[in-house]
Design a protein around this nucleic acid. Structure first.
Length: 518
DNA sequence: GCCGTTTTCGGCCCGACTGTTTTCAGTCG
């Protein structure tokens, strides 16, 4: 609609309907047309539109817009920094209608000649477009997971290996090995892109890139060898010729090393780690970093607390956004105190969970926190996170974060680089300095368990542990469902060698809170 | 297109940032 000169306010109303529906805590599709119009932002027209979509009826006004829009334009809108206005300008003046054309026109310098564009914008868009292209066809592990399960169940004789077995945070291609007796595999919903006697590659359900290879010797052995990265394979002399037996335990035994969990098979030092000490799901005792509908969460305070109780956590730390985060409904001082009163009421009615009131305080661009120092005393836990001006260079970003770390009220550094996997690179940091500052100021660094963040990156965990820094695994939950993300943080932690004694929220409530005090 | 109203029209979230402008448009979070 934006690309075809619809009334901007009409566009806005569809956007409002969408974001309102998204925040809805029930299935949109189970509602009657009358109930739909009760949802704020959904009126007669949008309700009718939803009903038509639900019954698979073509909606002429909508189909017409789709027909008028080249396929590749949708990709362009996904590129960060490209909104509908810029996409439209480039489409109409330079006839750019897909990502490759966009990249070409940037590289040849033509983009800077378009009205409203310049050298810097061109460079910025080129970087973001290349990142988009590189990310295309790849999935987050959390997105790939369900497909991996389906395929593994459909093909019981296929051995999963490679990055998918290691549970990499990003899956570019899931790889299975199959014995010749079961070759070739038969799988529904697979669009085959490559086919030979030894290998079949394709896309499963239009989302997950997959590859099946026929094993020349023994599929189990081949999959075992291929589950290690090449550098680890070489380092530990792992090849099909020097392993014997029928299962992984045998293979490790024949190599003379103790078993290495799949998550760690990228790390040449993995065999030196004690697997029993690595963090596991059951170790996590408290849910730290949870949002409610006081700010941009979906569920109410009560609902979040009840779900944490259902999940048998000992404590929950409510951390809504702070006042500067206007776009996310950040809390004014008044709202913080209102929430405090509500928490007190709930505390009086439940005895099986400890509730802490925290805040996810914005780190402003100069490194300061978001409320007056006096007011910050209202919170039990303060997570300091960057949400704006995400493009600083290493020096500026490091200085900014260190100032926040040195603030006497800061307990935990939230998603430290601001990255969004497959979407946005984080700002660069001098980790040595960040870790030293955290150590000196008793500040923990969160491992944000949201599968799109997983920030602190797992490759930095050992370095942080060596400095003695505590690393809570936090769901950054924006709904009761989001609490389940803890498991992705645990996977990342294990991949990074994170041991339970360094996981701040593996501590019981009282020890957790006293460890924070400075 | 939606909403609210002292209701059938008139207004629709916003602050920060950036780059391209020479006072603002576009995008992001």
């Amino acid at each position: 609609m934006e690309l075809h000169n619809e009334n901007p306010f009409k566009v806005r109303s569809f956007q409002n309907a969408y974001s309102s529906a998204k925040k809805l805590n029930e299935e949109l599709l189970s509602k009657s047309k009358e109930d739909l119009t009760l949802v704020p932002g959904i009126g007669k027209s949008v309700a009718a539109f939803i009903m038509d979509l639900r019954e698979n009826k073509p909606v002429p006004s909508f189909e017409k817009l789709v027909d008028l829009t080249p396929e590749g334009i949708r990709d362009l809108l996904q590129v960060k920094g490209m909104g509908p206005k810029r996409v439209l300008t480039l489409w109409k003046t330079l006839n750019i209608t897909d990502i490759d054309q966009l990249i070409n026109e940037c590289e040849s310098g033509n983009l800077a000649r378009a009205k409203g564009f310049g050298e810097k914008t061109q460079q910025e868009i080129l970087e973001k477009a290349l990142l988009f292209k590189e990310s295309k066809g790849k999935l987050l592990y959390s997105e790939a997971e369900k497909y991996l399960e389906i395929i593994s169940q459909s093909l019981p004789h296929a051995f999963l290996t490679g990055e998918a077995l290691r549970k990499n945070q990003i899956i570019s291609e899931a790889h299975w090995i199959i014995d010749s007796a079961y070759w070739p595999p038969v799988l529904y919903d697979l669009k085959i892109t490559e086919h030979s006697d030894e290998s079949i590659a394709g896309v499963f359900r239009d989302e997950l890139s997959v590859r099946f290879s026929k094993s020349t010797q023994n599929a189990s052995k081949t999959a075992f060898v291929e589950s290690f990265t090449p550098i680890v394979r070489e380092h530990l002399s792992i090849s099909e010729n020097n392993i014997t037996g029928t299962n992984e335990d045998d293979y490790f035994h024949s190599l003379g090393i103790s078993p290495i969990i799949p998550e760690l098979r990228w790390d040449i030092n993995a065999r030196n780690y004690n697997v029993d000490r690595l963090v596991k799901n059951a170790d996590i005792k408290g849910l730290v970093h949870c949002h409610t509908n006081y700010s941009d969460g979906v569920n109410s305070l009560q609902e979040m607390i009840d779900q944490a109780r259902n999940l048998k956590y000992e404590y929950i730390v409510i951390t809504d956004h702070s006042k500067s985060a206007g776009y996310a409904g950040g809390l004014s001082e008044e709202r913080v105190l209102q929430q405090k009163r509500e928490i007190d009421e709930i505390r009086a009615s439940v005895s099986d969970i400890v509730i802490y009131q925290g805040i996810e305080s914005d780190i402003l661009s100069d490194g300061s926190l978001d409320y007056d120092n006096d007011f910050l005393h209202n919170f039990d836990v303060i997570i300091a996170s960057v949400h704006s001006v995400l493009n600083m260079d290493e020096n500026k970003a490091t200085t900014r974060l260190i100032k926040a770390i040195e603030h006497p009220a800061t307990n935990i550094l939230g998603h430290s680089t601001g990255r969004l996997l497959l979407q946005r690179k984080g700002y660069p940091l001098n980790w040595e300095k960040i870790f030293d500052a955290c150590k000196a100021n008793k500040v923990a660094i969160e491992l944000n368990a949201n599968p799109r963040r997983l920030d602190l990156d797992f490759t930095l965990i050992r370095q942080a542990m060596d400095k003695g820094i505590m690393i809570p695994i936090n769901p950054d939950a924006h709904s009761t469902q989001g609490m389940g993300d803890v498991k992705y943080g645990v996977i990342a932690g294990r991949a990074g060698g994170l041991t339970t004694d360094f996981v701040l929220n593996a501590l019981p409530a009282r020890e957790f809170i006293s460890k924070l005090k400075k």
